[in-house]
Computed example of a mutant assay.
Amino acid sequence: MTASRATDDAAPTRCSQISALDEPLPGTATHVGAWLCLEHPAPWGRDIFDGTAFGDELTALLKARVDAAGIRLMLIRRPGRAAADAGAGRAVYLARSHPDHVQCARLTVDTPRDLLDVDLTWAADPAAPLPGSTVTGPITLVCTHGRRDVCCAIDGRPIAAALAGAAHPTAEHVWECSHTGGHRFAPSMIVLPTGYSYGRVSAGDAAAAVRGIAGGVLPSAGLRGRSCWDEPGQAAELAVREHLAAERIPLNTLTVHGDGPDVRTVVHSDGRRWRIATRTEPLPPRAASCGAAPKPVTAVHVGAVTPL
Rank of each mutant, 00 (worst) to 15 (best):
T170A: 14
G233P: 07
R224L: 04
V217M: 09
V191H: 08
L192A: 12
R226M: 07
A236Y: 07
G181V: 02
L223A: 12
V210A: 06
A208E: 15
R200N: 14
A171T: 03
A171W: 09
E176S: 08
T170R: 04
L238Q: 14
H183K: 02
W229Q: 08
V201K: 03
Y196V: 13
L238M: 15
G181C: 04
S178N: 03
E237Y: 02
R224Q: 13
A221W: 11
R200A: 13
A236E: 03
V217F: 15
L218F: 04
I190A: 02
R226K: 13
A236L: 05
V174A: 05
P169R: 10
V210I: 09
G233L: 07
A171Q: 09
G182L: 11
A208Y: 00
P232C: 05
V201G: 07
E176W: 06
H179T: 11
P232K: 11
A209D: 03
H183N: 14
P193C: 12
F185E: 07
G195C: 04
V217A: 11
M189I: 10
R184I: 14
S220T: 13
G222Q: 07
R224W: 03
H179F: 09
L218N: 02
H183C: 15
S178Y: 00
Q234Y: 06
S197L: 12
W175R: 11
A214H: 00
S202A: 06
G199F: 08
P219N: 06
E237D: 11
S227H: 04
T170L: 11
G204Y: 03
Y196T: 04
R211A: 15
V174T: 11
G222R: 10
V217K: 09
S227D: 09
C177S: 15
G215S: 14
A207Y: 09
G222D: 07
A209G: 04
C177H: 05
G182F: 12
P193N: 14
E231P: 01
P187R: 10
